[in-house]
């Protein structure tokens, strides 16, 4: 469903991704693990089109989208939850969600209710400005806002950051439910090994802008993960 071949990208003159390749099949949950500064966030930003690819090819649902603008990728079914949440702080939680739904042309009534069923905790805050929520609540809102657009693939950048442990468990359950109900696909960047293990089918290791290793989630016990993790580093 999503194929990346020999992707190069970076900021200005600083290259971050160098010849990165990966592929994600329909309905698959793929995790990407790697140290800070290895290019995880840059990869997601390049996939969604916020950063231009300087070389390589991105194919999504059969179409080459390497140079398509971000809004077109979003409409084609790519959802993105950025690190740092990126919610609209001056708008209410309700408007944050409705704006997202309207952006992909969805006008059905009941979509708000559906989103709130997935994230019941947001119900109490509907009329509060997004900026008045706590960090973890904003993170939930960012997730809900992406899912209300009914994307076929979701790019998640450290979605557990700032979220309390019990809600992390709920998110895992929800994502698995969405996979069963809607065939959702996920590409996840995460540092929380427990979360990545709970959610991913396979895990890719990113190092210095390229994928260096891949293992199944069963192989990702704490010790091996830490071992592989550190052996790459040193």
């Amino acid at each position: 469903m999503l194929t990346v071949e020999n992707l190069d990208s970076g900021y200005g003159s600083i290259p971050v991704l160098t010849g990165l390749s990966l592929s994600v099949s329909q309905g698959e949950f793929v995790g990407i693990l790697g140290h800070n500064g290895m290019g995880k966030t840059t990869l997601l930003k390049t996939l969604i089109g916020i950063l231009p690819a300087t070389a390589g090819k991105i194919t999504f649902a059969g179409n080459v989208i390497t140079s398509a603008p971000a809004h077109r990728r979003a409409r084609a079914g790519m959802g993105y939850v950025p690190q740092g949440r990126g919610i609209l702080p001056g708008l209410t939680v309700r408007d944050n969600l409705l704006f997202a739904a309207a952006a992909v042309g969805a006008r059905r009534s009941g979509q708000l209710e559906e989103a709130l069923d997935d994230f019941p905790r947001l119900k109490a805050y509907l009329d509060r400005p997004g900026g008045a929520l706590s960090g973890g609540e904003q993170q939930l809102l960012a997730l809900a806002r992406t899912l209300i657009q009914k994307p076929s693939i979701v790019l998640l950048d450290e979605p557990t950051e700032g979220i309390q442990p019990s809600i992390i468990d709920e998110i895992v359950d929800q994502m698995k439910g969405l996979r069963q109900r809607r065939g959702l696909t996920i590409l996840l960047v995460e540092q929380n090994v427990d979360f990545i293990r709970a959610l991913s089918d396979r895990v890719l290791l990113i190092h210095k802008g390229t994928i260096t290793n891949e293992f199944s989630v069963d192989a990702l016990t704490d010790t091996t993960a830490m071992g592989d993790f550190s052996s790459v580093e040193h």
Partner: peptide
């Protein structure tokens, strides 16, 4: 306030 957010296990 959340000093380990965004850090790998090793960095944590």
């Amino acid at each position: 306030d959340e000093p380990a957010a965004g850090m790998s296990d090793e960095e944590t």
